[in-house]
């Protein structure tokens, strides 16, 4: 199909964005990497009055270390995330996630801000943001507002941004931790049938602050509270991993989709739990 008719405007500063919002209100749709939005236009699934292109706004770019926080500009492309040295050093989970995101052509254009804003339940970066306890920095004419990632994804394709707000950056607290991502997808680059972004620390041989975040199995990234409680404060062993797997019965109620029923997705989530955590058995033993 052909795109619906619409207005296009390129902003070069945040002031341009606020002016466009003021003039056109809710008919404005933000265009960043466009890797989801442009496809929805081609299906006529969305018909915005105005596309506001924010890709030339310098304040939204760049990755910097600010004290104990790694600040990643909203316009950071997936490909940049994958090769940035600060990211590799302080948030390696994000770099590890990049090869799982679609294909190179999409990674060259898609942005972290766009991925978080779109809040696709099968996307990797929202799950990583929750696993890393990241903070989404939103801005509006009223200034900046910090929203914990765990509160940002409110429902299927829904986020906590207020009207007139855009994401300007993501802040990742840096702390020494174990973190990994794994997923099961039909083909390389496909949306995951089930995925897991996991982060935790080990102190005195015991698991501290585990965050198991599943994707592709709910209405958004799912922080599996019961599974995390099954690990918290215990040594990482075959038994505690099995307990975490069992707890997913409580945590996950995946919707069925074209790939299979709810039961299959929960099963795959358990498989991923074992694969990710088993890889840490040795490091935790060493730490103990």
């Amino acid at each position: 199909m052909k795109w619906p008719a619409m207005t296009y405007h390129r902003a070069t500063s945040l002031a341009d964005v606020w002016a466009a919002f003021a003039a056109h209100g809710p008919s404005v749709t933000i265009l960043a990497g466009g890797q989801t939005l442009l496809a929805t236009l081609a299906f006529r699934l969305s018909e915005p009055g105005m596309l506001l292109d924010i890709t030339r706004i310098p304040e939204l770019r760049g990755i910097t270390l600010q004290g104990q926080v790694l600040r990643i500009g909203a316009l950071t492309r997936h490909v940049e995330l994958g090769r940035d040295l600060l990211v590799r050093q302080h948030a390696p989970l994000l770099a590890q996630a990049v090869p799982h995101i679609a294909h190179p052509a999409i990674r060259n254009r898609g942005t972290i801000g766009g991925s978080l804003a779109y809040a696709d339940p099968a996307a990797e970066l929202p799950a990583c943001a929750v696993a890393l306890d990241a903070v989404v920095v939103a801005a509006s004419t009223a200034g900046e507002r910090r929203i914990p990632a765990s509160a940002f994804f409110t429902d299927l394709l829904q986020n906590a941004l207020a009207p007139g707000e855009i994401i300007v950056a993501v802040e990742i607290p840096i702390q020494p931790s174990l973190a990994a991502i794994d997923e099961v997808a039909r083909r390389s680059g496909d949306y995951a049938m089930a995925g897991l972004a996991a982060a935790m620390r080990v102190h005195d041989g015991r698991v501290v602050a585990p965050r198991l975040v599943y994707f592709g199995v709910g209405r958004g990234p799912v922080l599996a509270g019961a599974a995390c409680r099954a690990l918290e404060g215990r040594p990482l062993t075959a038994e505690s991993i099995a307990a975490a797997q069992a707890a997913l019965t409580t945590d996950l109620d995946p919707p069925q989709d074209l790939h299979g029923p709810s039961e299959m997705k929960r099963h795959l989530a358990r498989v991923l739990t074992a694969r990710v955590l088993n890889a840490w058995l040795r490091p935790t033993e060493m730490a103990a």
């Binding site: 099961v184 039909r186 049938m193 790939h259 299979g260 029923p261 039961e263 299959m264 099963h267």
Partner: peptide, 14 residues
Amino acid sequence: FTPERILRALGTIA
């Protein structure tokens, strides 16, 4: 031969 069908054949899922 999808993962779903293979997992069913294995009895992993009903």
